[in-house]
């Protein structure tokens, strides 16, 4: 079974078809997706801006992260669930959409970024967490995060303009 056939199969399942052909459910899930992105990207930006030494400079990085990141995870979960639902509803069409592919690659990169960050420079956060301007490695991770999530939002919006 090719990837295209898998996408077509997902597209034709009962729940995906019901969502695609719905009058209200689809726009509701779309709205939830946008709100979840706002929660996720908004809260992760607070941590990124702290890492860049732009906001909350007097608060230790770990305290900002501990308070804010649970909300980021909540947004991420909601965003993923709603995103999978919307993707399933349009799976056959999305298979050929170049921007959707770019978005998936960007999502993988945006996922790798915190994995690398938490397994490297963040391990020594007790040493630099109170610096107003954290070390370059931490700032780089923050810039990658802000750039990737911005690009993902732009790509998500651009999907509608390509077939």
């Amino acid at each position: 079974m090719s990837l295209q056939e898998i996408c077509q199969w997902i597209n034709d399942t009962g729940p995906a078809t019901a969502l695609r052909e719905s009058e209200l459910a689809f726009p509701i899930v779309e709205s939830i997706h946008v709100l979840a992105i706002a929660l996720m990207a908004g809260t992760v930006s607070i941590v990124d801006l702290r890492l860049l030494g732009i906001v909350l400079k007097k608060e230790p990085v770990s305290q900002v992260a501990d308070q804010v990141l649970p909300l980021t995870w909540a947004g991420f979960a909601l965003m993923t669930i709603s995103g999978v639902m919307l993707s399933a509803a349009e799976a056959a069409k999305l298979y050929t959409n170049p921007v959707y592919r770019i978005k998936l690659v960007l999502l993988v990169l945006a996922g790798l970024n915190p994995l690398i960050f938490h397994s490297t420079i963040y391990k020594s956060v007790s040493a630099w967490g109170e610096w107003p301007r954290p070390p370059a490695r931490a700032r780089l991770a923050a810039i990658c995060s802000l750039t990737l999530w911005s690009a993902i939002i732009v790509a998500g919006r651009a999907i509608a303009y390509y077939h």
Binding site: L52, G53, I143, R157
Partner: peptide, 17 residues
């Protein structure tokens, strides 16, 4: 770096209609 990061972020969000 800070200005560039903020500019990039704002530009990214600004494109989202």
């Amino acid at each position: 770096l800070k200005i560039a990061a903020i500019a990039l972020f704002v530009a990214g969000l600004g494109v989202y209609p």
